[in-house]
Amino acid sequence: MKLRGKTAVVTGGAQGIGRAIALGLAREGASVAVADLQREKVEAVAAEARNFDVTAIAVQTDVAKEDSVANLARQALGRFDRVDILVNDAGIFPQARVTEMSEQDWDRVLDVNLGGNFLCCRAFAPSMRAQKYGRIISIASGIAHTGAVAGAHYAASKAGIVGFIKAVARELGPDGITANALCPNIINTELPQSHRTPAELHERLIRNPLGHAMEPDDLVGTILFLASDAASYITGQAVNVNCGTVMI
């Protein structure tokens, strides 16, 4: 149990990657506050996390809203006294080509994917600073480096996370806080499932050098590493976990 006694906040924890991370942290002994817009689903994940004998709470949160993120911080810090680990996973990817993209599409993707990172880091940085310890891990994407058709807003938001997290690393490093981004390639989650047939999805998932269809759990090992003391000298990095698809 690498993280016994630690506490974590995971946004976007109701499903997919965020859920796997929340449960992975709990399995290693961390108490977790699981945040997501989807109330029932996030409560179910918190209940599942409690099976690992840790404290787990669910907080319905819209990471793009200041008051909602402030409420998340109040709930998490009220319940745990301290938050050691912040995982920013909440994100959306409504597909649209630039020429057909509405300003609303653009704003929503940037506000949730990148703005949510800003609001959550701003909300939890003061307590991490005070305790001289913190681990911030943001889920970016290989698309930050490669771009994607019908994903210009998503690519901008994810590349934004990489730049943002490097700056956060520099600002908060002197207080013993590390900040890193994790860039996965396509993962078998609800999001890519939503607009592909199972056969199309499988073909797409295994199209990487290792030929492995990545599941959300495949990211947990790297998250646990970055959240642990083993990675205490790693900060400001974008770590690719993508079966060799992108090597930038």
Binding site: P209, G221, T222, F225, V239, N240, V241, N242, G244
Partner: peptide, 11 residues
């Protein structure tokens, strides 16, 4: 833990 990483440089 790094079974899905290849071709990467960890700084």
């Amino acid at each position: 833990a790094s079974a899905c990483m290849t071709g990467q440089t960890l700084h």
